[in-house]
Structure formats: C-alpha cells, structure tokens
Design a protein around this nucleic acid. Structure first.
Length: 478
RNA sequence: GGCCUCAUGGUCAAGCGGUUAAGACGUCGCCCUCUCACGGCGAAAUCAGGGGUUCGAGUCCCCUUGGGGCUACCA
C-alpha cells in the first residue's frame, strides 16, 4: 500500500517550529517511502480564524523545501483539503456513527454541565442524554433546540495500540470522556474531523505531537466502529524552550518566519529542527533534504523532549554560510550590507567575502561593517601589539612609508597593495606583519576588523585609504 | 488530583547486558595568524536516586524524584 502522510495545522497565522518539525518528519517519511505528503488545513474552530494564515503555511512549507502532493492550493483527488469546506461530510459520518451506537445527541446546557464539575473543577459528562429515546431526540431537534453530538465511550474495558515510537499504549476507557464530536454550530471538533479525514484521505501513517498519545484510543474506537483500518501512529516528543516550558508562540520567537527574518537560512532551520528528536544512524548533522530523506528512520526518533538551542542553530547556520560560494553568499548578504551604514558606497562584492566566515546569522552583518563609515578619532593605544612589537612610536615612523607605498601602487587591487606593503616592510627591515598591522589600524581606527589592511585598503580605494592614513599620521603626531 | 508518558555532560545525542560511555554545539587551552574570524590540535564535563534480576546493568524490572502531555463546543 502506498504510504500517505499528512501535515494538518490549524491556521493560527504562524508557522511554529514545532509544527514545522512535525511537517518535516511527515514529509521525510512519505518521500522515503515514495509516498504522498498531504497538506490539510484544520480550521474547524471559527473563533480562531486568522486572515492570511493559510498563506503563511503555504509559504513556510515552500521555503522549507517541503512540497506537498495534495493540498488546498494544489488540489488532489481527496479534497476539499480545508476542513471548514467538509462540513457535510462530517455530518454524514456523524449520523452514521450514531446509527452504529458510537455517538449520540446531547442537549445538555452549559449550566447543567457546570453542575457536573468535581472538586478538581473537571467536568465529567455523565452520559445523561445517551438514554434519550430516538423520538424525543427528533422532537427536540425539530423544535430547534441546540445540540451537540458526543462520542459514546464504553464505561469498561481499555484500548490498546502500538505507537511506532512509544510502543504499546493502553488507556482505560473509564479515563476517557464522551467528547464532543460535532459542536452546536455544526462544525466538527478535532476529535472527529481528524479521524474522518485521515481515513477518507487514505492516510496510512499519522504523524503528530505527543499531546494525542493518550487520546488515540478514542480515535481507534471510531475507526473500529466504522469498520475502518487504523493507521500507524507516530507520536513525536515536544520541542522545549527550556526544561519546563514548551517552545511556543506564547514565549515569542518560535516561528519559522521570525528566524528567517533574523538572518537564518531556511535550509539551516529545517536541518536543525530535524535534529531535535531524531538522530540519523551515522550521526550526520549537516544534511541536505535529500540526505535526510534517505537517512530518516523511526527508530532514530527520540521519546524525550528536546530543548531548542539557538546557539547550535547559529553554528549550523554559519556552516551553511561558510559552505557557500562568494556569489551565493553575496546574494543573501547583499540586503544586509546595503542596510548598514555602508550602504552602497563601496563595492559590496568586495565586502561580502570578508563576512562569510565571520557571521553566523546574516543580521550580524551591519555591526560588523559599520566601522567602515565610522572612521574618526581613536586611541593611539590601538597600535600597541606585544607580540608584533609595535606601538604608537613605531607607527609614527612607519606610517609615512606606508603612505608612500600606497601612493605608488599602480593597480590598486589585493595583490598590488599586498606586494607594495611587503616591499616597504622589507626595505625598512621590518616584518611584514608589523607594517600590515599598523596599516590596518591606521585605515580602520578600530581594534577589530573583518579582514586585514590589504582587504580594507582595496575596499576603501586609493583615495580614501590615503585620506585615512594621513589622518592617522596627524593623530600620531599630535 | 487521576490517567498516559519521558529521564546519558550546560544543550542535542550515540548506546539497545560485557565500550577507556561515541560524536556535535558551547566552554577552556594551544597552534596558525596584520586584528577578528576560519582552520588544526587538545582538555574539562554525563548515565537523577534507591532497590532488585544477572557472573556482569547506562542498557531489563520495581519504587522514588523530577519533567512533559491529556483531563475543552482548542487543536
């Protein structure tokens, strides 16, 4: 049988990283088995409707490299793929389930339910309406009385199933409640819609978070009542913000988009979240989507929660950056360079390569290069370097030679500048490092720069370089 | 509270009865070096606690402790 998995988010307006990972595993599993990956929108809670939220889901999956074979925007043979458009389907199956004794109408009011609260504040429905006669039910519906449809859970016995990652799970039916399947507005709840849709859409492997681990026996009861084959269940441990808090939008910054806009590469984010809760057999860390598809396996999926570590994400993102060619890096770095104080004043293609091994996320770029436009008064102490045996005094005597050397460079490029400075050092009995170091400080006026004096001079150009070198010489002579 | 479930360094984790308990991030040190990065080398750091089972337990069982989940007309 062809493997079919689905990702079924509710459109909240965000693509949460936890959801992103669930989608990823479902995608990897489907692709590995040459199966189908389906996107279904679970928007049965109309109070939580958010404008444009489905677009966020589409674009995030696309950016993350997870293409779905069927979905609201791509079609398919099992549609519609939006639950709010499947209302009639649920109604039909709900009635069928009632016929089969797996569900029943309930007219209980909020007040009555409230009176059922126990000392813990929990409501445990007492199956009050289960005993209503068919005639009475029809009568009350005809009278326009509001009602819901509840699942009829056995009072005795227990449900057992085999989860692909957690193993055998057994829950006593007495622990389960007669949940509402169809709300009074006619819409189904997750408890009902997921079962109906997963079956109707031919889902063979249900991949979702552990929050459903202990309620799955309820769903199996429905599969069994309908005479449908139960899917394989694959529950996933949560991603945590820290030891006690789940990573969630409540604490902010847990959305895919947020990370992308902070300068993380989509591939790096996807690669990193893949590692939270799954470890490939060969312990690979940096992997392409193709490699992940090949290596994915359920016995490598962890059972325990994983804490999201943005330090490691940064590292991985940096690895992706370092693996880029100069052209590729320039393409992603360009907007960040242009948004810095440097803007487009210099040749940004010269600046970009200096940044590649020096930033882990793109948003660090402006801070790294703003000094190019902040040249001015600085401390002479910057010329002091113990190991190179340089200080302000030496700089004062060397700078004029540097100025002359720079002035005489004919082709003002990396090699031309480098050769000129080295020659100047040699001719004056100095180590090239001493001259280069002094030049670097004199050109930048800062202690730390991405790249050395040669790169800086090339970026600044001959004219600006000479201007700065002379400024520095004046500073030293003060 | 009840039920389900999880537990190896600070973090992600390998391990699936016999290992000097991998690897990665981070941290620290050294090397390279015109600064900072990159790169290279090295170090410190883990089996939550207690009982069993076994010749032998991080690995199996039980309890304790701690964490997460469910207990909605949310998913």
């Amino acid at each position: 049988m062809k493997v079919r998995t689905r990702f079924a988010p509710s459109p909240t307006g965000f693509m949460h990283l936890g959801g992103m990972r669930t989608a990823l595993y479902a995608y990897l599993f489907a692709r590995q088995h040459k199966g189908d990956f389906i996107l279904r929108i679970e928007d049965t809670d109309q109070e939580r409707f958010v404008e444009g939220a489905t677009e966020v889901i589409y674009s995030s999956l696309k950016e993350g490299g997870m293409t779905y074979d069927e979905g609201p925007d791509v079609g398919g043979n099992y549609g519609p793929y939006v639950q709010s458009e499947r209302r009639e389907i649920y109604q039909k199956y709900a009635k069928e389930l009632i016929e089969k004794g797996g569900a029943y109408y309930c007219f209980c009011t909020k007040e009555r339910l409230e009176s059922l609260k126990d000392d813990m504040g929990n409501v445990r429905y007492d199956k009050h309406c289960l005993s209503l006669s068919k005639e009475e039910v029809e009568e009350r519906i005809k009278n326009g009385e509001p009602y819901v449809i509840r699942q009829n859970i056995p009072t005795v016995g227990s449900g057992t199933y085999e989860d692909a990652v957690y193993g055998q799970i057994t829950v006593d039916y007495s622990e389960l409640e007669d949940n509402i399947l169809i709300k009074s507005d006619g819409m189904p709840t997750y408890n009902f819609a997921n079962v109906i849709d997963d079956h109707l859409m031919g889902i063979t492997h249900v991949i979702r978070g552990t929050e459903y681990l202990s309620s799955t026996p309820k769903y199996n009861l429905m599969y069994d009542a309908f005479g449908w084959e139960r899917p394989v269940y694959i529950h996933l441990p949560p991603i945590m913000k820290d030891a006690t808090r789940k990573l969630s939008k409540r604490y902010g910054d847990a959305n895919f988009d947020d990370f992308v806009s902070k300068g993380y590469l989509p591939q790096a984010i996807v690669n990193y979240i893949a590692l939270l809760g799954w470890c490939p057999k060969d312990n690979s860390e940096k992997m392409t989507m193709e490699e992940m598809i090949e290596k994915f396996s359920l016995d490598g999926v962890s059972k325990s929660p994983a804490i999201f570590d943005d330090v490691k994400l940064r590292w991985l993102n940096g690895e992706y950056l370092k693996a880029m060619t100069d052209e590729e890096f320039y393409a992603v770095a360009k907007p960040y360079i242009e948004s810095s104080k440097v803007g487009t004043k210099y040749d940004n293609k010269l600046i970009a390569p200096l940044l590649r091994t020096r930033v882990e996320i793109l948003s660090e770029i402006p801070d790294k290069i703003n000094f190019l436009e902040e040249f001015g008064e600085y401390s002479k102490e910057l010329f002091f370097h113990k190991k190179m045996k340089t200080d302000a005094e030496l700089a004062k005597t060397v700078l004029p030679m540097i100025i002359t050397a720079i002035k005489n460079v004919e082709t003002f490029n990396h090699d031309g500048i480098y050769n000129a400075l080295c020659r100047a050092a040699e001719e004056n009995g100095l180590k090239s490092g001493q001259v280069l170091g002094i030049a670097r400080v004199a050109l930048s006026g800062t202690a730390v720069t991405p790249g050395g004096s040669v790169e800086l001079a090339e970026i600044l150009g001959k004219e600006e370089s000479l201007k700065r070198l002379n400024f520095s010489l004046d500073l030293l002579n003060k």
